[in-house]
Nucleic acid binder design. Structure first.
Length: 223
DNA sequence: AAAAGGCTCAACCGCAGGAGC
DNA sequence: CGCTCCTGCGGTTGAGCCTTT
């Protein structure tokens, strides 16, 4: 992803930032929404002093910063539901996401494209329409659990087997970082506190950080 | 140990539809 | 009625990480 300041690419407005969000930007957005509520994203971005488009703010909030966003791997139950709903509605990701509490359309879309679609392509004869994805009892659905990609997904991306048990269905909705390198650090510390301030500064050198930490800061701010 | 290729997912883009004027 | 702005959605991209050779 673009690590550059991105102040002048594509956009006519040189003030508009693009690329990954920083901790500071996230804090600003969280604070502002906590105080004023969400919506009217363009004016929100300006009023909050963020050099981002309203679109970008909305996406960041909906996909990451919202407190009810559920991070971690897709569970088999969710997987099943996604298969069923996709069979019913096709690529209506937002509609599907509404039936998976805490999951975002982006997350489901990515999950489908990287795991399920690939698997179906590999195992189906040419021309098999994805919209007719089989119901849960279908061999395709069952066999995907044995697929290397699925297994990797359900055990996390690390070499540690501890990762999955702490990430999947974590009661506190997981300690999660938007950045893979920080996610890596969570692997080393499965007991990373999900409430309160961690004992270690939860940022890495890239300026990425932990959502729980950020929310705890928000709570401490009392806003 | 290093290189190459594959995989994941955060973030962007373009488009469509709705609301307000 | 037409225009503009905003929101939401689905598709796509590309950086970084992981796995394989």
């Amino acid at each position: 992803m673009d690590k550059k300041p991105c102040s002048n690419n594509n956009s006519l407005d040189p003030e508009v930032r693009k690329g990954p969000w920083t901790m500071e930007e996230d804090l600003i957005l969280i604070n502002y929404i906590a105080n004023h509520g969400e919506g009217v994203w363009n004016s929100l971005a300006k009023a909050a002093g963020l050099k981002r488009t309203g679109k970008s703010c909305r996406l960041r909030w909906l996909n990451y910063l919202r407190p009810d966003v559920r991070r971690g791997n897709i569970t088999p139950e969710e997987h099943l539901l996604i298969m069923e709903l996709h069979a019913k509605w096709g690529n209506r990701w937002s509609k599907i996401a509404k039936h998976l509490p805490g999951r975002t359309d982006n997350e489901i879309k990515n999950f489908w494209r990287t795991r399920i679609q690939k698997h179906i392509k590999q195992s189906d004869p040419p021309g098999f329409p994805l919209q007719h994805a089989p119901p849960s009892h279908d061999p395709h659905h069952v066999s995907i659990h044995d697929h290397p990609h699925y297994q990797r997904a359900t055990t996390g991306t690390s070499s540690s087997g501890h990762f999955s048990s702490c990430m999947v269905d974590h009661p506190m909705q997981d300690a999660y970082s938007p950045h893979p390198s920080f996610q890596q650090s969570l692997v080393m510390d499965p007991g990373f506190p999900s409430v309160g301030i961690p004992s270690v500064e939860p940022t890495n050198e890239s300026g990425y950080w932990n959502m729980e930490y950020l929310w705890s800061m928000q709570l401490l701010n009392g806003d």
